[in-house]
């Protein structure tokens, strides 16, 4: 492994407030789910935390800021699709219901985000919105905008997954959920295709970034990733793996529908285990 690669792997941000956020989230989760940490739930929550930390404090976070558009796309996918999706799967319905009953604000937000059009627009809009050239560059150059982006991606990710993973009364019928996720996959693919083949530089700041870590030469010359190739990889990431995440959701919903467990309240983790046992 080259010395630069080793250097990059060591780029963890140990002083980021994200650690604190992760700690608080873990505390709240463990407290609210006392006695309910059964099955896949704790694992799903841990996976969600890992996705969040990878996106915020790991070398991915560092490279996504000003170096590589493609890594920036990984950062987006982790924050928008992976972390919120896993988080919602790790929650217990009863706990969520209790929380919603206690807090009228939360309940209103949940009802609002439960509207499929709203959730869909947020999930897909987040992908499109943050890739408008001006905003994409602003998020790279102004730290406050970067943090705002991180928060908004997380929030919109939760809003996006909510209509297909909320408690039964608020959730879409599994087949409607399939259409919801398939439509997301199509939309995401279209944006991805655009990024992949577009001759336009979508995020100009990556092409002309300052190079505080002195990595540009390594990236451009040793790895051979020019800004154009970088954008192409970013587009492909949005097109193929992001779509596969939606598709995984489709399969889980289909399975729930087939076994009728959507109405019996079987959760995804158990459904997955059920599949495995078959």
């Amino acid at each position: 492994m080259s010395s630069q690669a080793i250097f990059v792997l060591g780029l963890w941000n140990w002083t980021s407030p994200a650690w604190l956020a992760a700690g608080v989230a873990s505390f709240l989760y463990l407290r609210s789910h006392r006695g309910r940490l059964t099955g896949m739930r704790p694992l799903l929550f841990a996976a969600s935390l890992v996705a969040f930390l990878l996106a915020t404090v790991s070398p991915i976070a560092r490279l996504s800021n000003g170096y590589l558009f493609s890594v920036h796309m990984v950062h987006h996918i982790l924050l928008l699709l992976v972390a919120p999706g896993l988080l919602l799967l790790s929650l217990d319905f009863e706990v969520v219901k209790g929380a919603l009953q206690k807090s009228p604000v939360l309940s209103r937000v949940s009802a609002f985000c439960g509207k499929p059009l709203v959730g869909w627009a947020m999930g897909i809009g987040a992908m499109g919105f943050w890739h408008l050239p001006a905003l994409c560059s602003a998020s790279q150059e102004i730290p406050a905008v970067y943090h705002l982006q991180t928060l908004s991606l997380l929030f919109m990710g939760v809003a996006f997954w909510w209509p297909v993973s909320a408690a039964r009364e608020q959730r879409l019928h599994p087949l409607q959920g399939v259409a919801y996720l398939f439509a997301s996959c199509v939309a995401c693919s279209l944006i991805g295709i655009y990024l992949t083949f577009s001759p336009v530089n979508v995020c100009p700041s990556f092409a002309h970034a300052a190079d505080p870590l002195g990595l540009q030469g390594w990236i451009r010359n040793d790895l051979g990733i020019t800004p154009q190739i970088d954008q192409q990889i970013g587009g492909l990431l949005m097109w193929v793996p992001a779509c596969l995440i939606y598709m995984s959701g489709v399969f889980v919903l289909f399975h729930q529908w087939y076994t009728g467990s959507a109405t019996a309240g079987l959760r995804t983790g158990e459904a997955a285990a059920h599949v495995a046992s078959k």
Partner: peptide, 15 residues
């Protein structure tokens, strides 16, 4: 499995 996997084939087939 056959039902669900054919949906998988169909949807992935577009990508």
């Amino acid at each position: 499995f056959i039902m669900v996997s054919s949906v998988a084939i169909a949807l992935l087939g577009f990508g």
